[in-house]
Amino acid sequence: MAPLLTVEDLRVTFPTRRGPSEVVRGVSFTLGRERLGIVGESGSGKSQTGRAILGLTPPPGVMTAKRLEFDGIDLRRATPAQWRSLRGARLSMVMQDPKFSLNPTMTIGRQLTEMLRFHARMSAAEKQRAALAMLEAVQIRDPDRVFRAYPHELSGGMGQRAMIAMMLVTEPDLLIADEPTSALDVTVQVEVLRILDRLVRDRGMGLIFISHDLRLVGSFCDRVLVMYAGRVVEELKAGDLDKATHPYTRGLMNCLPQIDRDIRPLPVLKRDEAWAR
């Protein structure tokens, strides 16, 4: 079976006063209908990798790649019209904080039905029904109320469920989740993740899960890419995390607190110039 997404030598460059700065430096991977985790520290290029796949590298940044194909479509040559029909319909993304990623002056219902407006031929009543059903699917107990609510009237967990509902209502093939639980309370995180996990499994979608939380990614994904300074330094099966060989991954693993052992002083993550080369 042909992979859903093929990325080869993806690079994202931003011009700065001191010359171009490459934040993603030759990332390659393929993705089927599976769950791929990308981990790394802040500034490792994981979020820019996700944005680049959606063609949303913020200007003046420039994205280049040897290959960037989604289901046989060369994304590098996609026209704006092609992008509009891909985004939302087949590719979508859940972002970090629903406080900022939802439009504050539109009701949740309008934001959900707007997704269908551009990607599905439905009557207004059908759109509303689909949106309500989707809100129910993310385990919102009173979808009618949430449908009519504005984002500020929802808690963070509710807002993120609404966001997930919006991004999945068109049944896309690939979802990029960029730190989808980082802004949420720890107690809510697990629940939101469980919802996301079930929806992705049920629909057989591809998922790219971007996070800085190695253990979370390990328990949630099939495969993990570890990024450092814009490069993939290690690729692992999620079950083999403790068999990681790269010193950076090992370093990350060693930093995790352990319940049965007091590891004080906490180890400091060592960085080596050579890994970035």
């Binding site: 959606l54 949303l56 704006p80 992008w83 509009r84 029909s85 891909l86 985004r87 939302g88 319909a89 979508s92 993304m93 972002m95 904080d97 900022f100 990623s101 939802l102 439009n103 504050p104 707007e114 997704m115 551009f118 990607h119 966001m163 919006m166 991004m167």
Partner: peptide
């Protein structure tokens, strides 16, 4: 420059 604009782009909303 707000994040919800990126959300709208992700949704494929016309410019």
């Amino acid at each position: 420059g707000q994040e919800y604009i990126i959300t709208a782009r992700v949704k494929g909303v016309p410019e």
